[in-house]
């Protein structure tokens, strides 16, 4: 093996390495199940396992603050948000046969090729690199807080502005679809109805004057919009 030149061989792993390998296997398996399962809710639940495994990996790398932030934000909020999204979009609870699109074999080819290239490059570049995990932890809360508030204050503040913008943006996006009645679907439906009305009035009157046609289309559209408004809140409450 060409790895014999490394100061620490791969054939005698330390305890931390064995733990990292086992947790990494669990994490990778959970990630594989997440992207291949046909039950959408199970995908979200396996994502919890993968993200929790990554938190354990951060702990093994002595980055404890990152680990707990990972548990709090990813496992605590992001997965819950994803589950809410799955329920609000009325995802099927059981197996859904169309979870994968038709290009899964092309996707598999691309992913395997990318994995081969990345692992080859990474192993070739860093096979002799050793992380010294002894001594004081590199990512304890004290160290992370000191570096964050000494060197990274300005990006930290900018990040709070970004979070505020994302909050406002999410609220605006979900309110607009509720109050704005000219959604594309309603538009197309009204348009087909109004065009149908135009042809009907053409057949009825036979006059090519544009006035009544336009007015008829407008009133029909208003009616359709009212119908859409009535359907909107009801669907909202049903989703809730």
């Amino acid at each position: 093996m060409s790895l014999a030149g490394a100061p620490q061989g791969f054939l005698s792993p330390t305890g931390v390495e064995i733990a990292f390998l086992l947790v990494g296997l669990v994490t990778f398996g959970a990630a594989l199940v997440t992207v291949t399962t046909r039950q959408l809710v199970h995908a979200a639940l396996w994502l919890v396992v993968a993200l929790g495994g990554l938190a354990v990996e951060y702990l093994l790398l002595t980055a404890e603050f990152i680990a707990w932030v990972q548990v709090l934000i990813y496992v605590g909020s992001v997965v819950v948000l994803l589950l809410f999204g799955l329920m609000l979009t009325k995802a099927p609870i059981g197996r859904s046969p169309d979870a994968d699109s038709g290009n899964r074999w092309a996707a598999l080819t691309v992913a395997v090729a990318a994995a081969t290239a990345l692992i080859w490059v990474v192993v070739d570049a860093f096979r002799a690199t050793w992380i010294d995990l002894d001594g004081p932890a590199a990512g304890s809360t004290e160290v992370t807080g000191a570096s964050l508030f000494q060197n990274w204050v300005l990006p930290f503040e900018a990040l709070s502005v970004l979070l505020l913008a994302a909050l406002v943006g999410a609220i605006v996006l979900s309110r607009k679809a509720k109050t704005d009645s000219s959604s594309p679907l309603a538009n197309s439906r009204t348009a087909t109805e109004s065009s149908r009305l135009i042809t009907k009035s053409d057949e009825d009157s036979g006059s090519p004057s544009s006035g009544p046609k336009g007015r008829g289309g407008r009133s029909e559209r208003v009616e359709a919009n009212k119908r859409d408004d009535r359907g909107g809140p009801a669907a909202q409450e049903g989703a809730r």
Partner: peptide
């Protein structure tokens, strides 16, 4: 710990996510 272990795990996870996005 060898740096290769987290690097390879991260490459594998990235490609798993890539497959998921595409498929």
């Amino acid at each position: 710990m060898h740096l290769v272990y987290p690097a390879v795990l991260s490459a594998l996870l990235f490609c798993t996510g890539l497959y998921g996005v595409l498929a």
